[in-house]
Structure formats: structure tokens, C-alpha cells
Nucleic acid binder design. Structure first.
Lengths: 148, 148
DNA sequence: CCTATTTATATCGCACACGATATAATCGCA
DNA sequence: TGCGATTATATCGTGTGCGATATAAATAGG
């Protein structure tokens, strides 16, 4: 007896994440952002002026992913990267005027996505929380295993 | 008002998929497979001798992703790639003896994962089906949008 | 005060994903 | 039968993710 990919919850996540990223790509193409770039911009619209590390803790990404991504956003003129004078190890990420202006141009995205999905908000919220619960369990188990 | 990534169901999927892939990476490292390679091998253990296209339909991947991945599996000696004599456009993927033998070495993986997650099977099955439902809705909406 | 350790970010290499395009084989139909 | 359309796979370029490692700044302990 062999499980097939469609039976596996890991594959459900894998293919749903791809479908979601493609749905976002359709909407984000207009404003010139990739989906991970949009996540970073979303985090900055909510709270500007954070360090690379603080962004990484929110998005669960390391500097090896964030640094090149942030350099591309800087090259696009959406953000500025500068060393923190208080602690020269840290790099502060701040939105430019263009980066702030992009928020309005992306304001329709969550609504368009919700419309594409077509499920009641309560269902989405419940599903989101269940998926976060799964993530938390996986990360805790990994933490525990690495401390063995 | 700005949604933050943790509020967004897309980010729940995104981070859960990363956590899942890392959990698998811990287990698959021993047998020398990446997580996408494991998905392909799983599909082949269930049904050997399929074409690239048939694998792609099951895993929802295109040839631009599968071809290099399959070449790496071939270089590892897990599979053979050969043109279908019936239709020279198609490439048949068949397990080698080593590829079949790997099934036994990977047999513990689903159990280890379930243990890491630590949720009842019924919950996992329900969650899996809800996530598949979300994927289906996203793909249908994309299909509909592209036909506009 | 001076060095060992820790912390924050960056660099490198590899393996995906995927849009766009290329190539070759097969099919459809006049 | 011939040829344009379709199908199956491959190639190319870009952008992630991440393990491993490097580098530089800050901290801690003697």
C-alpha cells in the first residue's frame, strides 16, 4: 500500500500554496511585485522602519532569502536600506514615498483574492487559524528534535 | 488599516508549506531526496511507467519544473527516462531497481511526520480536504479569469 | 582593557517554480 | 497526401528558499 500525493496533507499544502501564489501573481503583475515581495511590502505598510531580522521573524525568512529580495525592492525604488547608527550590525528598512504610494495601488488585492476564493470570511478565518496551528506544531516538533 | 501577513490566509499557507518542507527535509536527508523529489518518487511508487505529463497532472507541475528534477533523479539512479516508442513526443519515467528499493527506506516517513504533527488522523484528513477545496476554488477562478 | 563569544547581516551554491519560448512529433482536414 | 494546428517535452531567465559559511559589530568575562 502506497499513499499517493493527493492523499497527503503535505501535498495539499504544497499545491494550495502554488495555486495561491499564482492567483497573487495575476494581481501583482500590474504593480510589478512578486508574491514574496508583496508580503514584505505588506509587513512594511503595517510597520515601517524595521530591521531585516524583525521582518524575518514576522515572515519566517532568514537573511539569505531577505537580503537579495530587499535589494531588488531597493533597486525598484520601493524601500531604502541603511545601517542602524545605534548598532551597525543591523540594517533598517524604510519605505520610500513610492513604496508608501504602492499601498493604494495594492489595496484591491485582498478583496480580489477573497472574491476568487468565494468562501465566507468566517470559513477563511477558521481555516487560516487551523493552518497556523499546523505550522506551530511542525515548528515546535522541529525545535524539540534539534535539542535532542 | 493594513492587514499584516499573520492575518492573511495566503501567508498561513506560505509559512505552513515552508515548515512542512523543512520537516520533510530533516527526514529525507538520510535517503538523499529533496521534498519535491520525494513527491515524484511517491507518485511513481503508486504507479510506475507514467509520462512526464501524467506526473505533472498529478503533482500540478509543468515540464519546465519536472524535466530538470527528473534528470537529477535519473543521475542519482532512481529512475530511467525514455521516449515512448508509441509516440516519440512522450517521455516515459520508470523506476530502477534502486528506485523501487528506496520505497522501503522511506516507509517510515509518513508515520514520523504524523508523529511530529501530533494531531488525530481525522483532523488531518479534514484539514487536507479543506485545503484541497481551497486549491480547487483558486484554480477554477483562475481558469475562469483566463477565459475572459 | 582585551579577547572570546555572540549577534546581525551577507554571500555562495543548489534546487525548485514558472512565464516565455523553442523544438519535434502527431493530428486534422482540405 | 500535404501542411497548418496541436501536443509533449525541453530550454532559458528570473526570483525565491535554505544550508553552510563568512564578515563585521557588539557584548561578556577575566
Amino acid at each position: 500500500m502506497q499513499l499517493t500525493p493527493p492523499d497527503m496533507i503535505c501535498f495539499a499544502l504544497y499545491s494550495a500554496q502554488h495555486a495561491m501564489q499564482q492567483a497573487y501573481a495575476d494581481l501583482l503583475d500590474d504593480i510589478g511585485l512578486t508574491y514574496p515581495q508583496y508580503l514584505v511590502m505588506t509587513a512594511l505598510w503595517a510597520e515601517d522602519g524595521r530591521t531585516v531580522g524583525a521582518l524575518g521573524r514576522e515572515l519566517r525568512l532568514e537573511s539569505n532569502t531577505l537580503t537579495p529580495l530587499l535589494k531588488r525592492l531597493e533597486a525598484q525604488g520601493q524601500i531604502l536600506r541603511s545601517r542602524d547608527p545605534e548598532d551597525e550590525r543591523r540594517v533598517l528598512i524604510r519605505l520610500t514615498e513610492a513604496g508608501r504610494a504602492l499601498q493604494a495601488r495594492a489595496a484591491h488585492v485582498p478583496g480580489c483574492l477573497a472574491e476568487r476564493i468565494g468562501l465566507p470570511v468566517e470559513d477563511l478565518v477558521r481555516l487560516r487559524d487551523e493552518i497556523h496551528g499546523l505550522s506551530d506544531r511542525l515548528r515546535q516538533a522541529r525545535q524539540a528534535a534539534s535539542e535532542r
